[in-house]
């Protein structure tokens, strides 16, 4: 248990410190890199609590895909962060309010767990200890809540189609390669072979 304890404090310490660095780093690219470090340590914490599937999905989805896009955008944009920081005091009340509401919600949830531990037993789908967590998640997502899952998928699909429709613009005069057209070309119609006498040309 000592090893687990040490690993827990290591992961959480690095996660908290790098989370602070995300908002305090001067260079936006460094911020994103610290964000990635935070995700990674959160994945470590998931592994420690026995949720290895979630840990891997966190790394694959957030670190492997979402954060790459972040990094891409941040590297390409030339953001003047000194200018962005000027409105800091003006936005402080709104930001503080959002933060306070989030904190209150977290307290309600975590407090509920601590005050009434028996509440967890009434969860809709209790997980048996014998089932691996990939199977458990599969059973809940694809068997018990299949329709809700499908609805969520449809909503995401519509959002994706919407985003594409909003940003798609057809430009005139763009040359594109059409593979089928190229393959379908007949050499007889395009090339003419001539016998050329030496020294005379065509």
């Amino acid at each position: 248990m000592i090893i687990q304890g040490l690993a827990f404090y290591l992961f959480s310490l690095v996660a908290v410190v790098s989370a602070v660095m995300v908002i305090s780093a001067r260079n936006p690219v460094h911020s994103v890199l610290f964000l990635i470090l935070t995700f990674f340590n959160a994945a470590g914490l998931f592994v420690l609590s026995g949720a290895e599937f979630l840990a891997m999905i966190l790394v694959i989805v957030y670190v492997g895909a979402v954060a790459v896009m972040f990094l891409f955008v941040v590297m390409m944009l030339d953001i003047n962060f000194a200018e962005l920081r000027q409105g800091f005091l003006r936005y402080l009340p709104i930001g503080g309010l959002v933060g306070f509401i989030l904190l209150a919600e977290l307290l309600v949830i975590l407090g509920g767990w601590t005050l009434a531990p028996e509440a967890a037993a009434t969860a809709a789908a209790p997980v048996q200890a014998s089932v691996s967590n990939t199977h458990a998640l599969g059973q809940i997502l694809y068997t018990r809540y299949l329709y809700l899952f499908q609805v969520a998928g449809m909503i995401l699909l519509i959002a994706m189609v919407g985003a594409i429709v909003l940003t798609l613009r057809r430009r005139q005069g763009v040359r594109r390669q059409s593979i089928s057209e190229q393959v379908a070309r007949d050499p007889k119609a395009c090339i003419e072979i001539r016998k050329i006498p030496t020294g005379r040309g065509i």
């Binding site: 290895e52 891997m56 694959i60 670190v63 492997g64 895909a65 790459v68 891409f72 691996s132 990939t134």
Partner: peptide
């Protein structure tokens, strides 16, 4: 011998891009 070996490999290979981008 972990239960999510394939996902682990996939996760590690998806991290490979950071070395190059950085």
């Amino acid at each position: 011998n972990i239960n999510v070996g394939v996902l682990y490999l996939f996760a590690i290979s998806s991290l490979g891009v950071y070395g190059i981008v950085m």
